[in-house]
Design a protein around this nucleic acid. Structure first.
Length: 201
DNA sequence: CAGAAGATGGGCT
DNA sequence: GCCCATCTTCTGG
């Protein structure tokens, strides 16, 4: 699909990512799901971003690339996946925090070692999809094992504060987290499922 | 049952 | 030492 929507405003790109389908084909197994929760990280101006004030390290080097790249970092032994937006001078991106499982659920259960909470958190969904930092950091969407395609449309998008950044001063207050209203496959909050899990059609 | 608390953990500076 | 998380256990209603 056309990825140019990742090139411009990162907040808009984040909202447009909701409902898109992520498909991975890793270790010969196909898994997929629809994006239900994302967070935008705005680089230079954003105290919660890895690239705040254009900080550049071996770890976040990937953010200084053209839109469409995949940035994977590790946290407490878990992998977190971001899609890079903008261009090489603007290290911005969108953290994928949760998806609604679609295909390959048996594979997800196998990889996770449990049958519940497969994809309702940034470290969980990467484990279910088989995404690893050493193999997939620096790859590009639709040019490798990680594919992005059209999926579903959220009825309504909820804006909220980002998770896990309580020591980032004013950045804590930014409403840069976006979730599909009525979809239970999200991190932290327990959501009562609405009709069609909050998707149109 | 929900929410809080504690342990765990890897890659970087 | 710092950090965009998860799981298990403990607590209280």
């Amino acid at each position: 699909m056309d990825l140019t929507f990742l090139k411009d405003d990162t907040l808009l790109a984040a909202k447009n990512l909701l409902g898109k389908k992520i498909t991975t084909e890793i270790d010969g197994k196909l898994t997929s799901g629809y994006i239900t929760e994302v967070e935008a990280y705005l680089g230079e101006q954003d105290k919660a971003a890895h690239a705040y004030q254009l900080r550049r390290t071996k770890k976040n080097e990937m953010m200084y690339r053209e839109y469409g790249g995949v940035y994977v970092y590790t946290m407490h032994g878990h992998h977190c996946m971001n899609f890079i937006t903008r261009d090489a001078t603007m290290p911005e991106g969108v953290l994928i925090r949760a998806i609604e499982p679609e295909e390959g659920i048996d594979t997800m259960i196998e990889r996770r070692g449990r049958a519940v909470n497969l994809t309702d958190g940034p470290g969980k969904l990467t484990q279910s999809l088989g995404v690893k930092r050493d193999l997939h950091n620096g790859t590009r969407l639709n040019e490798g094992p990680i594919q992005l395609s059209e999926g579903r449309m959220p009825v309504q998008i909820i804006e909220s504060k980002r998770i896990g950044i309580d020591n980032k001063e004013e950045a804590v207050e930014y409403l840069y987290r976006f979730t599909v209203k009525g979809n239970p496959y999200v991190s932290k909050d327990r959501v009562k499922p609405e009709e069609k899990n909050g998707w149109k059609a």
